[in-house]
Structures are given as structure tokens and as C-alpha cells.
Design a protein around this nucleic acid. Structure first.
Lengths: 226, 226
DNA sequence: ATGGCTATTATGTCTGCACATATTCCAAAG
DNA sequence: CTTTGGAATATGTGCAGACATAATAGCCAT
């Protein structure tokens, strides 16, 4: 009856009830440990979880305070596109539209660093039950690829990367755009349709790996629980 | 040189190098603890973090295995709109467009549960340096509101909620849409522009709290690091 | 006053141990 | 052959104590 989840709940209850107001300092771990009759490590676990989810802010020596302007944190799952299609109960297939070395456009260079020369430009159309689902426009650093190149017509660049270069660091951005003529044609939707766009940039510790832009067919939704 | 972050790094390195292939079982905590010369708790911490980020899958008795189809997990910060505007160095202001009791439309009812009757419909335009930034279309459960009602022209419903009803559970969805005529007019953009839409639904343990739809002005980007 | 050094203090992490809990696996009973 | 009921086992969590680290607060000398 006094595991770290119970402590977590109790602390949350005190915050909600305003017993500990927004922005206020709360008692130290040692004090709470004594009050609840548990070890300090247990309190630490509970408070650390709350800090991770944005409810508390902790600083050494300064103590723990209730976040003044709580920033809700949501975790997004970013699955491989094939898994995403299959999770909807649809049949996955892909069409490789392009795969050649070329000079990346300036915005891509700017994000990855100017020191890279030609990159592998791979364009893939991902289909769900034969209908356009996502158009993937990707630039790959050839230095990280094996020779001969993987067959991106059989396994998408998206999937090949998570299986072989997995767990790099990077950033991701989401936005809404009007579909370009080319994208609309590939996806089979009206020109200028509002499309959901995911833009990702990933890095190995030393060199850039890839820049990718996913143009999702209209109706796509990214969702998660809070 | 052997904190849990070092263990985490080493494990990640072994996964990347395919010393531990995708889908394979890895040694037990006890074994790794001995190999690295640390306590089991330290290994546990490292592996737990990796499981949380989707790299490993752990089950009692079954052991720990490398995730076969890794699902990248990204955490999104969902700040209060005012904070978001101010973080861009712009001046925040708001205009309350509507605030009245009404029967919610069917889609809203469906998501919140049919048992609620009339709800408070609040529409707010959030401005950054005087330009439309977000149009907030919100339905509130009146049962959770105090009397008299908060002055939503002074503090946005968005901000009032995080400060007073904070830390409920809920879900969130993002999509791209063409701006409706009304929304386009309010935001001051062309009709049919592609807009980024956030839709959120939050619940108290027992009753629904609110359903909200945020229509972001074109150019809005949601971003995070992986 | 003021700038910098030091002591203090709250959190962060580690250890070694223990017990709880969920699952698997195997063996015995039907 | 199937089902059921343990035993075995890997992870999950707890405890008490210790040291590490960061950041504040106060003190001292200039």
C-alpha cells in the first residue's frame, strides 16, 4: 500500500487539491520519506516520474517545486510505415519512384551540414490496400550505406534504416501544407489538398544519416494519449 | 565510468553493432551486472530506460529482448498557448469570440460520452503580435466550472484549465485540414489554406472535462528531438 | 558594497540485499 | 493427449546507507 506509484498518486492529489500550490516548493525527499514511512529512494522514484511528465521541476539543492506553467508531455510512437499500414488491417505495398545520386537542395544541405557532397535521393510511394498512403522523399548519406546498395524496391528505405542504422539521434517536425502538384499526383489526390507532413533529420554521432519528408495522404491523423 | 548511462550506452552500442541482433534475447540483469562490475539495480535502471524509449522489450521471467521492429518514441511538449507565443518573442493577446451554453455537435458528444447535456462553448482567437496564431474551439463540461464562471476574456480557457483542472488524462490528435471559411476569416488567411489542427479530449476520473480543437495559422510547426 | 571562496544542503546515483510478481516450463493427474 | 498445478526464474520494486554533484547562501577580504 505504499509503493512508489502510491506516493506518486498522493503527491499528485496534493497538487490538484492545491495543498501544494502551483509554483510552490514541496518538502524534501527525506521529509516525505519519513512522513510516508518509506525509504528516500521510493520517494525519489515517485518524484522523478512526476518531473519527467512535467508536473514537477527539480533542481539540486534548490529543491522540488510544482511546475508553475505545467507543460504537458505526450509521447508519440513513430512506427515503421509498413507496421502502421498493417496495424490498420490494410495490405502494404510500395513503389520505388526514384533512386539516384544527386546534389541535395539547399534546405536539406543546410540542415545536415554543408560538408556532404552528393547524396542518394530515394523517393518511395507507400500504399495501403493499393491506395497512396505516404510519399517518402529521402536524402541519404552514401557513406553510411553498404555496397551493393540495399534493394529499396523490396524493403523501403524507411524500414531498412530502422533495421540497420537504428537508434541514432535526430529531430522531427510536423506541419500542414498544400500538396504540390507532383505530390498530389503521386498520392492520387486533388492538387492543393491539405496534407500532413512529417520532416525528420537523423544523425550518427559523427556524420549525417538522412533527411526525410513524409507527405501523408489527406485524412491521416497522428494520435496519442496524454 | 560505470554509471547507468554508461551501461545504457554500451548496451545500445552492442545493439547497433548487431552483437545483439534485432529480436534476440540479451543476457539477464544479473549476468550483465557481473560483467560490468556494477549492482543489478544499476543495470536495471539502464535497461528500463532503453525499454521506455522502445529499444528493448522486457517481460518478467521471459527476459529482455531487442525490439524486432523498433518503434521510435518521441516526447512532445504541449505548452500553454500563451507560453508558446511568448517563447517566440512575440506579444500575446487574445480575443474571446464566443462563450455560451449550447448543445454540442454529435462528434463531440460521441467522443465525450452521451450523458452530458448542454456544454459551455468557448471560442477564442489567440494572437501573436496582433496576428492570428491559433483559433481555439472548445466545449467545456459546466459541472467542473466554478460559479461565477472564470473570465475567459482575461485568461484563456486553455490557460485556466491547466492552472485549475490540471493533470487529467486524455488523448490528442494532430491532422492537416483545409481551413473552413469561418476559421480562415478569424485567422486572416486565405480560405482553404492548409492548416495544422490539434484536437484534444480530456477527462477527470469520473466525468468529461473538455473537448478542444486548435486551428493553427499556416506555417505552424510542431517539433521535437528524437 | 562587492567579488569570490567555502560550507551547506537537496537531489542524483550506486551498492547489496531482500522480497514480490509475472511467466514460463515441466511434470503429474485426469 | 490434454489439462492443471506447482517449481523455477527474470524482472519489478523496496530498503538502508553511502558518496557524488550542483547550486545556493553566507562569509570574508578587498
Amino acid at each position: 500500500m505504499s509503493g512508489w506509484e502510491d506516493i506518486r498518486r498522493e503527491v499528485l492529489a496534493r497538487i490538484r487539491s492545491r495543498a501544494w500550490p502551483l509554483g510552490a516548493l514541496i518538502p524534501t525527499e527525506a521529509t516525505l520519506a519519513q512522513e510516508f514511512g518509506v525509504a528516500r529512494a521510493t520517494v525519489n522514484r515517485a518524484l522523478s516520474e512526476l518531473a519527467r511528465s512535467g508536473v514537477l521541476e527539480r533542481k539540486r539543492k534548490a529543491g522540488t517545486r510544482v511546475a508553475a506553467l505545467p507543460v504537458r508531455k505526450a509521447t508519440l510512437d513513430i512506427p515503421v510505415i509498413r507496421a502502421e499500414v498493417e496495424a490498420r488491417g490494410e495490405a502494404y505495398s510500395l513503389r520505388l519512384l526514384r533512386c539516384n545520386l544527386a546534389q541535395p537542395p539547399l534546405p536539406v544541405l543546410a540542415r545536415l551540414g554543408q560538408d556532404v557532397g552528393d547524396m542518394l535521393h530515394v523517393e518511395t510511394l507507400h500504399l495501403a490496400s493499393g491506395r497512396g498512403f505516404v510519399l517518402e522523399d529521402r536524402w541519404l548519406n552514401p557513406a553510411i550505406l553498404p555496397t551493393p546498395l540495399p534493394d529499396f524496391a523490396a524493403i523501403s528505405a524507411n524500414e531498412w534504416l530502422v533495421a540497420h542504422i537504428s537508434y541514432a539521434s535526430g529531430d522531427i517536425r510536423f506541419c500542414a501544407e498544400a500538396a504540390s502538384d507532383a505530390a498530389a499526383a503521386a498520392l492520387g489526390v486533388a492538387q492543393g489538398s491539405a496534407v500532413f507532413v512529417t520532416e525528420r533529420c537523423t544523425w550518427a554521432p559523427d556524420a549525417p544519416i538522412t533527411w526525410v519528408r513524409l507527405i501523408h495522404a489527406p485524412g491521416y491523423r497522428l494520435s496519442t494519449v496524454l
